[in-house]
Design a protein around this nucleic acid. Structure first.
Lengths: 167, 167
DNA sequence: GGGTTTGTTCAATTTAGATTGAACAAACCT
DNA sequence: AGGTTTGTTCAATCTAAATTGAACAAACCC
């Protein structure tokens, strides 16, 4: 029978809620969905690894959300499957080294956009070269150069960022 | 009478559309609304400063969007009011120095979150100190320390970022 | 084989937040 | 004064993206 008064033993305690809320805010700043913050947050306060079903039960999110959220967190290098447990189901634990977290985010979220940005600028440069009016063409060439400078700066900054965060 | 065949002289030409689309994608990565990218993008390709009405007319966005978008862009230091023109209405031009753009973004979007993050971690630390079970308390203390380390790293990185982008 | 557990996929739904547009205010004119 | 231009505000609407949940698949059991 279902528990009376909704007195679920599944609910988060106040501390867990505080931590989860912290990470929900955190990932929003990074432009990631709320569920990512909830999942990572709960893993972060947990003393033991958690399974997908644990996340569904305690966070009251759907299996779909939990599955997709874990996939993204794995691709970011922010969670890993726990070793050991000869169990059937897999348990997850958080990566807590900033170096790894920042590295995954840069690799998965920033670099791809930087690359596609460079490609779009190349196309832009072509379009700008075909402009008839010489003065307009010159102006556009300057703007395109400016964009290329931005991208170069971005490319130079990322490795430094990674190095500084790896400590 | 309205123009026949929707042959508006207001529509963006293909090059302008390409540039606007570039910035729309760009600001989405930064978590800013589409209209911000449209406005900055059109200013960026324009050889002359543009007024709020110019933006409304050419981008076909509402006056509300244009007004709020310009306000945010001003707060980010990404646009400024053009000098000269003794006109009544104000004209805007884009800031194109990466140093200024990155500085504004860091000041307006990143630092506030970093500060509020530190505050939330302090509260978290208090909550964690009150936990009864000693083992649990120790674990949570470690996690809180980890968060504090992250924030310190973040704080150290920002000035370096600004310095590197200012070139 | 059938039954159970664990996890994935994706069309339909929900929701957060961006956009609209009408009312309002401010600054100018004659 | 009243009229016009320029820009702001904010409740209502719209839309893009996150979430759901049911169907499906895969891996194990007996």
């Amino acid at each position: 029978m279902a528990a009376l008064l909704d007195g679920d033993q599944h609910e988060l305690d106040p501390l867990e809620r505080q931590v989860v809320a912290f990470f929900v805010d955190g990932v929003r700043v990074l432009g990631l969905p709320r569920s990512i913050g909830e999942i990572y947050g709960l893993l972060f306060v947990s003393q033991t690894p958690l399974s997908l079903d644990d996340l569904v039960l305690r966070l009251r999110i759907s299996k779909g959300s939990a599955s997709q959220g874990l996939r993204m967190l794995k691709s970011l290098g922010a969670v890993r499957e726990a070793e050991g447990g000869a169990e059937r189901r897999t348990y997850y634990e958080p990566a807590i080294e900033l170096k790894r977290l920042a590295g995954g985010f840069i690799r998965e979220q920033i670099r791809p956009h930087l690359e596609s940005g460079k490609a779009k600028i190349s196309l832009l440069a072509e379009t700008a070269r075909d402009v008839d009016d010489p003065e307009r063409r010159k102006f556009l060439g300057d703007r395109v150069d400016r964009l290329e400078t931005w991208m170069r700066s971005g490319g130079r900054v990322l490795p430094v960022l990674q190095k500084l965060l790896g400590q």
